[in-house]
Design a binder for these strands. Sequence first.
DNA 1: TTAGTATATAAGCATGTACTTATATGGAAA
DNA 2: TTTCCATATAAGTACATGCTTATATACTAA
Lengths: 116, 116
Amino acid sequence: MELMATIADDLKLLGDKTRLTMLALLQQREWCVCEFVEIFNMSQPSISQHMRKLKTAHLVKEDRRGQWVYYSLNIKDKPHIQAVLSSLPAPADIVRKMGREESIVVCDPETSSCAL
Amino acid sequence: MELMATIADDLKLLGDKTRLTMLALLQQREWCVCEFVEIFNMSQPSISQHMRKLKTAHLVKEDRRGQWVYYSLNIKDKPHIQAVLSSLPAPADIVRKMGREESIVVCDPETSSCAL
DNA sequence: TTAGTATATAAGCATGTACTTATATGGAAA
DNA sequence: TTTCCATATAAGTACATGCTTATATACTAA
């Protein structure tokens, strides 16, 4: 039953508060690394390493646009992950409770800056 | 958002092949430790330690009857766990693939033996 | 090219995990 | 009681995890 092992490995990735929240937020829209750094109030390498794990497990897709890398969900073929994410609070509610009333991070191609 | 942390901690427990399978099997019926020892082909302390984690997280209840301890699911108030378990293969299919065609472990109060 | 920004990777460290073996506890039978 | 069986706990160990700091890479703009 290596299927159970595969599912367990996926769930292990969701067994971290940061990654679980990331996936929850990605249900709403794509996010770039600099936004996650801001909203999670964590170091950039830490965020980057979490995203690498999610990407390696094929739970997210990455899309580089200019100097920014945007991540989006990639769980169409993973009902167990969908099941978990569906049972979580709505992304907007999570964002609301994460310190900022709303995400006001801007990755602006005009000014080429990622700032509040 | 400590709710997310709580859910993540629950999911962390499901992020282990053995515990995930245990919970999947417990959907079908209650199981005693000696049955798990047989079907998982693992040491008794290892099984016992997994059950303690599940019990500490209130994901299972224990019921001692004679010298045996039976465990059953306790996730009525945990929709995220229910969501995961619902997405898994049926318990009978899991058992079928675990080496024995069916569980023929017997915890027999008459002979007071737990054997095949 | 050079400088600046965004992201990724590497290495180190503290902590957590899942097993092992050995031993303790709890209950049933003699 | 003593013995046996089922289960729990303790201690040790190998490995995994999540962070940190430092550095490398990728891209943009001047």
